[in-house]
Amino acid sequence: MFCGIVAGDVPSVKVAEDATTFAFMDINPASDGHLLVVPKRHSKDLFEIPADDLAAVTLTAQRVAKAAAREFGADGVNLLNCCGADAWQSVFHFHLHVIPRYTDKSKDGLTLPWAPVPGDVDTITELGGRLEKALN
């Protein structure tokens, strides 16, 4: 679907476009001004996207997030990426959600299912050590 939007075959409300990225309004917005930024070159997810495309998408997301916060008077912004069906990815073309956040909940329906609670220090330490080794 997102390849069709980038190609102009599927209608969208375009917000920004450059040689590498395309930003457009989300048709199922979590808040006023919710939009998506995608690479023009197809990549399935975070694991597949080339580093240069990821950097370009992130920079475009930052640029449109700043504009959205100014233009809509947002009190904050979430950037969200879901990688894999079990992580809520529903469209398998890499994308970043840019979600303006508002104190005024009439503009903002997003609630997260995760409520942070302190973790087990031993588990955190063990997993961090494993990951540090995997990266070296």
Rank of each mutant, 00 (worst) to 15 (best):
K14P: 01
I49G: 02
D75F: 04
K14E: 08
D104W: 04
F22Q: 03
T123E: 08
T103F: 13
G4L: 08
F72E: 11
E48K: 06
V98S: 06
P100A: 09
D108Y: 03
F92K: 02
D9E: 14
A67K: 08
W88G: 07
L80F: 06
H42F: 06
A67G: 09
F24H: 00
R130H: 10
L131T: 12
N81T: 11
W88M: 15
D9C: 10
F94G: 04
N78V: 06
I5K: 07
P118E: 15
C3G: 14
T125I: 15
D104C: 12
V6L: 04
S106K: 10
P100W: 03
D108W: 01
Q89R: 01
R130A: 12
R101Q: 10
K133H: 12
L35T: 00
D53Y: 00
L46I: 02
P50I: 00
R70D: 10
N78W: 05
L59V: 11
G4A: 07
D122T: 14
M25Y: 08
L127V: 13
A74S: 04
E132V: 15
H93P: 06
T20I: 08
D26N: 09
K14H: 03
A85T: 07
I124W: 07
V37F: 04
P29M: 01
L36S: 01
I5C: 05
P11T: 12
D75T: 06
V38A: 00
V10L: 12
S43N: 03
